[in-house]
Design a protein around this nucleic acid. Structure first.
Lengths: 208, 208
DNA sequence: TTTTGTGAAGTTTTTCACAGCG
DNA sequence: CGCTGTGAAAAACTTCACAAAA
């Protein structure tokens, strides 16, 4: 069954909330309460959860631990993905220390940069290689997901080198430029400027 | 006229592309070409642009410089917003150096942190204050937009302090937790973990 | 002829409203 | 009774297809 992207996005939010509720030893929670805590309609919460089977109890709500494990299973990959991070600048380093990269769902196997001071170093216990050698190293290591934390100007070249390895199935890019890749490669984008621009645009509209 | 959020998001992409085309001294561009460069359908591009008046020339396309100025005007705020950044950790510092914060659309007036080593310092020519004093300083300076680059545990407290000033109209949060604010405050979220999780979820689906 | 601008059609996503079950 | 699960309705967003303009 096809699950929509907005639903998957919210599943991650449910997952986090349930983890927290579970730690607080909360036993039961209703769609209404989940909605209030996350800023969603209760019907939206129920619809999302219903795609994966009947997990709640009518008249009662959802059993926190059961739902937590359920959502966790839905989001669990069937194996550990090998990933690489390209661009060990400020943003790349911030990500290395970020919660998001401390997950058992993948293992960070390589860093790439073109700064000679960084090439050959081991940073946060991950070896840093020369960007020029990206294609070979990604292929050798069988890396399947690449995170790009590089300036716009370098994004397309890096994407091409990564894709050329033939092992890369997904890219998460922070670059403020579009990259073109074969359609079998899945690309997600995190774009800080776009979010700021949207915020300012709609603020302007509200003031008017 | 109400403009949809996905349209505003794409306007930022058009803006960037047009800036680049303008620098390359490109004179004219068609919706077809814009679409190919950004991975969008030509009809989508035309529809987006048509919301703001007839700006293209039939049989010819869009005049790059004219369209660039046009999109730029649409996205321009009517004044410079005063902003503050809360949390001068790795992510906060990465943002301070990031292109996204070098914009004439706003002026970064204050940083906040609870690390005594940072409080009182001037970082990237912006003064850093104690988080405890956030409400007063935000009110004094009339800050309207706050960027939160802090751990989940601190997000709600910081949001509350910022909102308590009464001047804050928008929040951009990088925290991996939901924050609740009065509904007149606009919140946008940049969530790295969510994007990574989505990528892995849909990769799993593709492999199956 | 070429390419825009745009109603209409199609698709996706959200919300409603209530049957169904504990 | 209370709250879930879910078809059906509504809303939001995208794509089509073609008239109109350069």
């Amino acid at each position: 069954m096809r699950v929509a992207e907005p639903t998957v996005e919210r599943l991650v939010l449910y997952y986090r909330l349930l983890m927290q509720l579970h730690n607080e030893e909360r036993r039961v929670v209703s769609s209404q309460e989940i909605g209030e805590m996350l800023g969603l309609k209760a019907s939206q919460v129920r619809k999302d959860l219903s795609y994966f089977g009947e997990i709640g109890k009518r008249g009662v709500g959802y059993h926190v631990e059961r739902l937590y494990r359920h959502v966790s299973d839905i989001l669990s990959p069937d194996r550990v993905w090998k990933i690489a991070l390209v661009g060990v600048g400020r943003l790349g380093e911030a990500l290395l220390g970020h919660k998001a990269l401390r997950s058992e769902k993948f293992r960070l196997e390589a860093l790439f940069d073109n700064d000679p001071a960084k090439i050959g170093q081991v940073i946060c216990s991950v070896p840093c290689y020369d960007s020029e050698e990206m294609t070979e190293i990604i292929r050798e290591k069988g890396i399947e997901v690449v995170i790009l934390t590089i300036p716009a100007a370098a994004a397309q070249v890096s994407a091409d080198r990564a894709v050329a390895a033939g092992t890369v199935k997904g890219i998460l890019t922070f670059a403020t430029t579009a990259i073109s890749v074969p359609e079998e490669v899945l690309v997600y984008r995190v774009d800080i400027s776009v979010e700021l621009e949207k915020l300012l645009f709609f603020l302007k509209g509200r003031m008017a």
